[in-house]
Simulated assay, not measured.
Amino acid sequence: MKRISNLIFIFFTLLLITTSCKEDEATILIGDAISPVIKYVSMPSQSSTIPGRNVYINGIGFSSEDSISCRSLEEEADFTAPVMSADNYGIKIFVPEIAGGEYEVSVTRNNLTTVLGEHLFVAFVFTIDNLSVPASAESGEDLVITGEGFMNGDQVLFESDYYPQGISYVAETDMATDGVSFTVPDGCYGMNNITLLRGKKTCNMGTINIPVNVGDQIGGGVVFYTSDNGVHGLIAAQENVVNEQVFGPSIQVDPYASGVSEDIFTGKNNTDILIDGIALWRAAGNSAEPTVAELCGQYSVEINGIIYNDWFLGSLNEMTELFNYRATLANAYEFVPAQNYWTSSVIPGSNWAWAYHYVNFWESETLITGAAPCDVWAIAARPIRQF
């Protein structure tokens, strides 16, 4: 009996020891669970984070088993980004088409989550597959752009570097068989960047050239010269900025007028040089009334609610083209009155800008140019702008 009791005691003792060992073993295997530790995180730029594409987040501590959750901070749709791969330097995720704006990013592993200190910024863009855009169109023309991925309500935005600041044009679209149709807005001209608008999101569709003709009234004035089949050109204001005024003081070419040219499409740069030059002249303690270049640069006109304020004094060759255009008009003097007109091109061959080229608009057909003493002759100036 005593032997049986001893056996029972030994059995329960072994059982207790075994259980204790298992509990200790389990504790060692599980350990203390902690959230993922991710260091040195660097997010991709917003411009490179495009919906529908993979992006790479730099950082140490990511795993291919991670779940990446993105919570919108701009009331856009939240999403869980599929993990494409992970390595010692970061993680590659897929950004879905619905994404856009700023996101708080969380990394979950083994049911524990770490919120990253850096935010992911997704570009508000989308793509159109197999996109085909006509190279050119006319203002008011009905146009079709083909591609896959258009939606009802899409709009087409027309923008140009030569439109006044803040001015753009928007066309409403209709769904077509292979894309969308719309009418090119009135007022568009020159080279236009076109963008598809869908709420906050955009799709860059490239450019469309909208040519114009000499004599067209657009862009705040009258087109008097074109190049590149009407895509670029020059526009004259419909009035003089002055009728009788000296150009300004006779000053040294270097540094006050260095770099001016006689060529087409240099009048804007000439005017900027001359405005900066007279500012330096005054800063050196000299006095000067507003110059003709400054008056042209300050000229502004509002037409149909649009303010055009990027005018300048034309170069010799630009003002020559204005004379050539005026010579073709039946009522030439109604457009540009008879007078001599300043240009922004200095007479070469002297260290002093004592004279600037002028163009004689007293003549109706014969072109006459010459040197006008800048602080003696009081003649006219007509602002122009370019596109």
Rank of each mutant, 00 (worst) to 15 (best):
I208F: 10
M205E: 01
V180R: 00
C188Q: 04
E239S: 15
V242H: 00
F182Q: 09
N213C: 04
C188R: 08
I208H: 09
I167F: 04
T195C: 04
I210D: 03
D216N: 15
T226R: 05
Y169K: 14
G190Q: 08
G220P: 03
G219Q: 03
G233V: 10
I218K: 02
N209G: 11
N204T: 03
K201I: 03
T177A: 15
S250G: 13
E262C: 04
T202V: 09
A236V: 13
A237T: 01
V223L: 07
P249S: 09
G219H: 06
G179V: 08
S181P: 02
V184I: 15
N229F: 15
H232P: 00
T173W: 01
N209W: 05
N270K: 08
I194V: 06
D254M: 11
N243F: 11
I210N: 07
F182M: 10
T266N: 06
M205A: 10
F247C: 06
N192W: 06
S250N: 13
P185H: 10
L234K: 10
G179D: 14
N240R: 12
I167W: 10
K201T: 13
Q252M: 14
V241T: 15
S181K: 02
N209Y: 08
V260S: 03
V212F: 04
A171Y: 12
P255Q: 03
Q217S: 12
P211L: 07
F247V: 03
G179S: 13
N192K: 07
F224R: 04
D174L: 07
I210P: 06
H232F: 14
Y225R: 06
Y256R: 01
M191D: 03
G199R: 06
N229Y: 14
G220V: 03
I210R: 07
I251H: 00
Q217C: 08
S258M: 10
V253G: 00
E172A: 12
N270W: 07
D263C: 04
N193K: 13
I218W: 05
A176V: 08
L196K: 05
T173G: 07
G248R: 04
D174F: 01
T207V: 10
I167H: 08
Q245E: 13
N213H: 08
T226L: 07
D263L: 09
Y256Q: 09
T195V: 15
V170I: 15
G233P: 12
N269S: 13
V222H: 00
N209R: 14
N270V: 02
K200C: 04
S181D: 09
N204G: 10
G206H: 12
Y189Q: 09
N269E: 14
M191G: 03
V242R: 00
N209T: 02
N229C: 10
N193I: 05
P255D: 02
G190I: 11
I218R: 02
G219E: 01
S227W: 00
E262N: 11
V180F: 09
N209P: 01
T226A: 07
T195D: 02
D178V: 00
T202S: 12
T266R: 01
Y169W: 13
T207F: 11
T173S: 07
K268V: 01
D186W: 05
E262W: 02
